[in-house]
Design a protein around this nucleic acid. Structure first.
Lengths: 337, 337
DNA sequence: AAGCTTTGCTCAAACGATTGCGCAAAAATA
DNA sequence: TATTTTTGCGCAATCGTTTGAGCAAAGCTT
């Protein structure tokens, strides 16, 4: 009834010791040969007093919190929101709870979050890192199993599962080239971020040696950036490019908005292709051709990998070989180019 | 250095007792008249061994977890993603962490989440409830301070802060009427959900007594629902309505898609207005007139209210008067009607 | 010099669980 | 009946903190 029942309450009400109660309640009755009578009485009493184990005390004693820390750089970004939704569900299915932190693309907030995870004694961490250096992540991962998702570091032994941004960008660019576009404007996001670098590399590699004019501009995964760069390039009637490759859906939106202002019609006047998962892109007119990342698959692998490490460390087994996976994205063809 | 330093390590390295160390490290040095020498030595040693307090042990002892449970019905829904982002930030600013659970619109998952929050001894709960009955929420709220956001229950004393869905729907409908539309189709979401009921009431009240033809269809806050209902009503050239009021952005998208298939042009052939915050709606063509909910303001009030309860309970003061707020939404006029 | 205050710290008991070890009673075996 | 084995359970330490109470030494007062 009261929200204050603990293992001791049950012990005194049943006349058994706390040890026995604990063993029954944690399902260790067999192992310790508790009588059926005791089991029944204790279970029944526990139900009556509406016993809820104190997970804090449990964590302290067992050194298992049944909690995973999830660190994303912006939960309000639909991409990470979707990703989080999938991961939270996968964790819940395994009986784990999620402590969510948002670094908001700031490395000091990231550091605070990681320290908090460590203090909270989470059993594992799934992180979309923002820091330039792997140092802190590596340090923490010595104590706590960790896997990176969506972004990773160069030259690190941390396990990660990301989509192959290089490949995705090549696919996008090749598609444009196949369609016969002759001059392509790439609008990039944060230049230092790993996905951006890979996309850029994919783009330039794809275009290398082809008789195609191109340029790369931009510096943020934002609507404004997309808008501004289009305004710069296409103002006063200029038509320097016949196709645009937006490195994110946000950039794309800004670009579309700018084109509308400039009275340039997408598809007829200029082809457009974008990166990112975003079902919304289907509702634009024309619907936008894009590179989609297999979020579910990536999440599943990441979670799988994480528990692989957790389990092996718990058992004292040698760690599984570090999983560093790049998953190929898919090209979703619509009518924007 | 090692990740295993605790208060005891520091005690033995400095020669002081754990009590003294604890008091220094929790900033209670003054209060207990610890010498400056001790303070300096202990702090310095703590830094050297990279001491991180074990928050689990701390929670157990102090009965304060510095954690708030946040329960949403679908983190992958941009609306709740945005809301969560704001709330997480507000909590972090106050030094609180967020345990996020996703009920996925299921009341059994909601129940599990709430029980989990209770077991985890969170200091407070912010919930977007999905259950039909307030019972469980009310029960839990006796132990743990709680505030509802976005949705609430009828006849409950639980504090909540929601946007005024009735008012929003009236505003939307009045706007359509002012514009001279004569026959309006409302596509609703989950009929049993509180926001939907209020929106429906607002819609019918606004239309009552006006010389206007109308209908209400639909049953889910989904793209499919929007699509299907439009297909039903407008198929084979029928034009039974000159305006559509979509009760959510998802519904709206489905509707737009259907109109496109039917070769019906939004704005010229039919006016459209929508509910929900979604910056994306500005990038549709035409941009969609809509009712936006002041998420930031609501979140701030909710967090404020929650800490009001937390603080007063901690101090043993009488609880603040129950805060039940309806915040007026705003009409964002674009060109879709 | 005796008594009173202040200073600076330590002791030990919580918080609510888990768990290795041990032990009495009952049952089985000899 | 004496011994061994099994059954069923309890004792007490432990996880890493916090905190009320207490106490010796130093300083002050008269």
């Amino acid at each position: 009834m009261e929200g204050k029942s603990n293992i001791f309450t049950i012990a005194s009400r049943t006349g058994y010791s706390v040890s026995t109660v604990s063993r029954v309640l944690t399902g260790q009755a067999e192992k310790y040969r508790i009588s059926k009578k005791a089991i029944d009485l204790i279970s029944e009493t526990a139900r009556q007093v509406n016993y809820q184990p104190n997970l804090v005390a449990q964590s302290l004693r067992t050194k298992q919190s049944k909690t995973i820390g999830l660190l994303v750089p912006g939960i309000d970004n639909p991409f990470f929101a979707t990703l989080s939704g999938i991961i939270i569900k996968l964790l819940a299915d395994r009986g784990y709870h999620t402590l969510l932190a948002d670094s908001r693309e700031s490395d000091v907030e990231e550091e605070m979050a990681l320290q908090m995870f460590a203090g909270r004694k989470v059993d594992g961490i799934i992180s979309v890192p923002v820091a330039a250096s792997a140092e802190l992540h590596e340090q923490i991962s010595r104590d706590i199993p960790m896997v990176l998702i969506d972004r990773h570091f160069n030259h690190t032994s941390l396990p990660y599962v990301c989509t192959d941004n290089y490949l995705g960008a090549r696919m996008a660019t090749d598609f444009l080239l196949d369609k016969g576009y002759k001059s392509i404007l790439a609008i990039q996001g944060v230049p230092t971020s790993m996905p951006n670098q890979e996309r850029l590399r994919g783009f330039t590699d794809a275009i290398k040696g082809k008789p195609v004019h191109y340029a790369v501009v931009g510096n943020a995964f934002s609507v404004e950036n997309g808008h501004d760069e289009i305004m710069n390039c296409f103002s006063d009637g200029a038509r320097p490019f016949d196709a645009v490759f937006a490195f994110s859906a946000t950039i794309l939106l800004g670009a579309i908005d700018a084109f509308r202002r400039l009275n340039i019609e997408v598809k007829r006047d200029v082809g457009i292709i974008s990166y990112d998962n975003n079902g919304f892109l289907d509702f634009l007119d024309p619907a936008v051709t894009r590179i989609e990342q297999p979020l579910r698959e990536a999440s599943e692998i990441a979670v799988e990998t994480l528990f692989g490490i957790i389990d092996s460390r718990r058992e004292g087994l040698p760690e599984p070989t570090v999983c560093q996976r790049l998953i190929p994205p898919t090209l979703v063809v619509r009518s924007s180019c």
